[in-house]
Structure formats: C-alpha cells, structure tokens
Amino acid sequence: MLAGAAAILALVLGLLLAAFRRRGTASDEAAGVKVWIIGLGFVFSMSVLAALTVYGLFAGQRLMPGAGAGVEAGVGTRVGADVVSVSAEARQWSWRFAYDDRPDHITDDVLHIPAGRPVDVAITTTDVVHSFWVPRLAGKLDAIPGHVNTLRIEADTPGTYQGLTAEYNGPGYRAHVFTVEAHDAQSWDAFVAGDRQ
C-alpha cells in the first residue's frame, strides 16, 4: 500500500513539475479534457480504487475467522466448537473480564485466553464509550453503553500481550491499559479448573 501511494504521489508531482519545464505549444481544450479528466481523473483513479476496495474486503474477511462474520453487533457470531467466549466490561478506568468456561471467576485488567484458539470477546461498558484494542491480536472495537460488540481475537503463541483503550474517555485515558495472558493448552486447562489465578 505504501509503495503504491508513493508511486501515485511521484506521478502527480512529476506531472506538476513537468508543467513548469514544458515550453511547447498550448494544447486545446478538448484534447486536454480527454487526457487529463477522462484518462487520469476517471479511468486511473477508478481502477486504483476498485483494486484497493476489493483487496480491503478480502483482507477484512481473512482477518475475521468464521466466514467473515467476525464483527457483529450483539449476538450472532458463529460459534464453532473450538471458540472460547469471554466478556470484557470497561469502566473509567479499568477493564473487568469474565469467562464462559469459568463462570464464577472475574479478573481485573488481565485477560486470560488460550493460545492457538479463536476467542470471542463480548465488549461492553458500564459508563462512557471505550475501545478494546490489543494491537498484536486484532483491530479495535468500541465498548458502547447498552450494546455488546463481539470481537474475534486469536494469539498464535503463548505470552503476554499489551492491550489499550483507544477512544478518549476522560483524564484517566492514558493509563487505561490492560494485559492479555495467552496460555498454552495445559495452563489454560488449569486456569479453567481454577488451580491458579
């Protein structure tokens, strides 16, 4: 995307500067419209944009496991056997996580997930608008009062991932962060069984 953008920028600036270098005869209006407006204005920009949009949609679907049904308001995300469901509730300024697999357990500012399995995070808030964002696992999704938004995340390897709030939510915004602990299968089972925090 960056290379393409640079090429277009170079093209536009090149044409611009060439206009100052050129000292030929003035071209007529009809020919100018054909070349500049139809050719470059329409055909060129349309084809670049069409390619980009199609690419974006396919990339968007690939990022969303479950046949592209990844981001949907409320329920309705397709749940396979393998999918783990957790919920994230934001408030000024902390995150509270709960787990379908371990109903009695709640963790603050630390989200536990299994590595290598898709996780659906049901995101909501008790006060203002927040946004759930773990940059290395997925894009962001807003926490909106009265709504539950579901985001599919997946960690390929066990480890600790940094999570952030990404919508301004008052003076505590900067420090409103959390961590995601991705467990291997064994330690996830232990977590679900309640052996460790």
């Binding site: 536009v12 044409l15 611009l16 060439a18 206009a19 100052f20 050129r22 071209s27 100018g32 419209v33 070349v35 500049w36 407006i37 470059l40 204005g41 329409f42 060129f44 920009s45």
Partner: peptide, 12 residues
C-alpha cells in the same frame, strides 16, 4: 482526482 488532474492539465 478529477479536480486535481484538471488543475494539472490547466497548467500544461
């Protein structure tokens, strides 16, 4: 895009 290229075309 049409406008930007029309402006450059005007310069040409």
């Amino acid at each position: 895009g049409v406008q930007v290229f029309a402006w450059i075309g005007t310069l040409w």
